[in-house]
């Protein structure tokens, strides 16, 4: 896709090798402000490797990584966070036995007071948690309730609300809908739209075409470590995407096979 100056983050011809394994091979990719960019691909397509490069876990073997037009090289996930790139991992973002408020501010707790009397600013913590969760459309009555009492979608909302509050410009969501039921998945899709409305760039990783299409502005297809290209939403149909994804052809074949079987049965 065309790289223009408004790109929040951009990969140019990025490759990643693990020994003899070529995990990513010459992938280019860009996200702009207020854009939801879906990354579609079957297992083994290189999605995880791409996320790990974006979130600072791995450095690319070849190619350029630009944040707002400037080349960067991240040494750790902390660097990526500082650059405004927040990754919301599927299960590894919240602690179930801790309260919503404690989770919200974990690692970045606001304090007040001085010297040995420095202590957590609980008024601010509870108020902000309630406000920020409300902006994500979740009404927290009691910020002291354990996160374990929340549903999967609500936990995602917490992770997203937290990332947004702490200044994320780009949100990377790793398979946020894959473990959720239909209703909860739609809640998360709505959250993605909300994050976009607040001016964030969102990278939404999924292997579910039906989750990608309702919110995506741009779709990039990955297959066996290569990019099959980025498409604006109107440029490509669901069927075409399914066909291009590895496994798409298998599904079509399977359908034909099953149809033949049921005809035989009749």
């Amino acid at each position: 896709m065309a790289s223009n100056d408004a790109a929040l983050i951009e990969l140019r011809d990025v490759s990643k090798y693990f020994g003899t394994v070529i995990a990513l091979n010459g992938v280019s990719f860009a996200v702009r402000t207020g854009e939801v960019h879906c990354l579609l691909g079957d297992n083994g397509a290189g999605k995880s490797t791409l996320i790990k490069i974006l979130s600072g876990v791995h450095a690319p073997t070849k190619g350029e990584f630009l944040v707002q037009g400037k080349p960067v090289s991240f040494a750790s996930p902390r660097d990526a966070l500082d650059a405004g790139i927040a990754t919301v991992f599927q299960d590894l973002a919240t602690v179930p036995l801790m309260s919503v408020a404690r989770n919200f501010f974990a690692g970045r707790e606001p304090v007040k007071g001085w010297g040995p009397l420095k202590h957590l600013d609980w008024d601010f913590i509870n108020r902000t948690t309630r406000e920020e969760m409300a902006r994500m459309g979740i009404d927290v009555r009691d910020p002291g309730q354990p996160v374990g009492t929340l549903s999967g979608g609500e936990r995602q909302s917490l992770a997203i609300a937290r990332a947004v509050f702490f200044g994320a410009k780009v949100l990377i969501l790793d398979e946020p809908t894959s473990a959720l039921g239909v209703h909860q998945a739609s809640v998360v899709l709505r959250l993605i739209a909300k994050a976009r409305a607040r001016g964030l760039g969102v990278i939404f990783i999924t292997h579910n075409v039906h989750h990608a299409f309702p919110v995506a502005d741009t779709i990039t297809l990955l297959n066996r470590g290569r990019s099959l290209g980025s498409y604006a939403k109107g440029e490509i149909s669901r069927e075409k995407v399914l066909e291009m994804m590895a496994g798409g052809k298998e599904l079509v074949d399977l359908e034909a096979e099953l149809a033949a079987m049921s005809q035989q049965a009749v």
């Binding site: 179930p96 036995l97 801790m98």
Partner: peptide
């Protein structure tokens, strides 16, 4: 109950991976 270190203790014990991911 009242310090950052206390919140870190809970986070680290509750889920060390989550703790690392949020920068504890």
């Amino acid at each position: 109950l009242q310090t950052r270190f206390g919140n870190w203790i809970f986070t680290v014990g509750g889920d060390p991976n989550a703790a690392r991911n949020v920068g504890v």
